[in-house]
Amino acid sequence: MKVAIFASGNGTNFEALADSQELKNAGLEIEVLVCDQPNAKVLAKAKQRNIPTFVNRIKDYSDRHAYEQAIVEKLAPLKIEYILLAGYMKVVTSTLLSAYPNKIINIHPSLLPKYSGLESIQRAFDAGESETGVTIHYIDSGVDTGPIIRQATVPILKNDTAETLEARVHATEHQIYPEVVLELLKK
């Protein structure tokens, strides 16, 4: 299965996917990393793994449609079957959605529908929740509203700080995202 991974930051979920021997053995081919931040750490991680990158900044385009159309044009010759969002901090709109219907998957650090959008872990922690988690879902035209594929709960412990909670949420992400992608590969 040929995929593009989209990321904006450190790239820990990118690493979890790219370094999974089980995914490689099952046929995962990461054709390109698409990144909207030219200084993101994930770019170096892709380079270390000999994965091509495409840096595409929205400010270089007249509007979001033109920005996403450039991505569609980049991906078309690569025969991408799925787009895996891994910390991609842009809302996906109709241009990409129509080019890849039901083929864009996101990972979000909360138990959606709770705490959609940004700063999900911090907001759950500040609210005094007893648990939070991770959701993997298909992208639709809303923000973090698409059909849920899988969720995993992460308890918020009495001695947690926002940082320790975040570390446990990320560890859960790194475990379940490759598992979900593996399930897709087996279909």
Rank of each mutant, 00 (worst) to 15 (best):
E129D: 14
S141P: 00
I105R: 02
Y138C: 00
N102R: 14
L97N: 02
K90T: 01
A127K: 13
L112T: 08
T93V: 07
P113M: 11
Y100M: 04
T135P: 03
I104K: 03
D140V: 08
G117W: 10
G133P: 03
V134F: 04
G117I: 02
L97V: 05
T95V: 03
S110K: 01
I121Q: 05
D126G: 09
E129V: 03
G142L: 11
I121V: 15
L112P: 03
K103P: 00
T135I: 04
K90E: 11
G117F: 13
A99I: 00
Q122V: 04
E129C: 12
P113A: 07
L96I: 10
Q122M: 12
H108P: 00
L112E: 10
S130F: 13
P101V: 07
I107G: 01
R123N: 13
G142S: 12
G142Q: 07
K90P: 00
G133Y: 13
S110Y: 08
E129S: 13
S130Y: 15
S120N: 07
N106F: 02
Y138G: 00
Y100K: 06
K90M: 11
E119D: 15
K114W: 09
I107P: 00
T95A: 02
Q122F: 07
L118P: 01
P113G: 01
T135E: 04
P101A: 14
T132H: 06
V92L: 10
E131R: 11
T135H: 06
A127Y: 15
L96M: 15
S120G: 11
V92Q: 05
P101I: 11
L111E: 06
L97P: 01
S130G: 11
K103S: 13
V134W: 05
G133K: 07
I104D: 07
V92A: 04
Q122R: 15
S98W: 08
D126Y: 14
L97H: 09
G128C: 01
G133F: 14
G117E: 10
V91Y: 09
Q122S: 12
P109C: 12
F125W: 08
T132L: 03
L118A: 14
V134G: 00
E131N: 13
P109G: 05
Q122I: 06
E131S: 15
D126K: 14
I121S: 02
S110M: 05
K114P: 00
